[in-house]
Design a protein around this nucleic acid. Sequence first.
DNA 1: GCCAACGTTGGC
DNA 2: GCCAACGTTGGC
Length: 149
Amino acid sequence: MAYWLMKSEPDELSIQDLARLGEARWDGVRNYQARNFLRAMAVGDLFFFYHSSCPEPGIAGIARISAAAYPDQTALDPQSHYFDAKASAQKNPWSAVDVAHVETFGKVLGLGYLKLQAALAEMPLVQKGSRLSVMPVTAEQWAAVLALR
DNA sequence: GCCAACGTTGGC
DNA sequence: GCCAACGTTGGC
């Protein structure tokens, strides 16, 4: 089983939303590196749910991959914010996964706090200029974050 | 294949 | 709202 971290704007989908829904679709990823990580995910993999572009950016909880990557239909929908004119049903470069709620942390582990952790220094999340929205997490990093809860 | 211009991300 | 950093686009 692998570990990951994925960013979501809480206005779009927050860990609280996911807790209420139980399960949700994770779509709209439009970066090839992030997409490749999505495609590498297996059912049962766990990920840190990160809140971005909000008053309190940070890791807000844990969720689980409940369906492996499949074509992201939002790329084909002209009404969607994530519409990609170059995508077609025959050739859709974008992928989505389904996710299920596992745990909402009692407090958000803020980005500034995470940056102080030596064990997390290698994570793209805390590196200057990194905008990657889906990234792998090592078992060591996973344990280090869990210890901060 | 280079690289300038532009668009996007995301913290602050 | 600002802006740094990065990715993508498109002219040449």
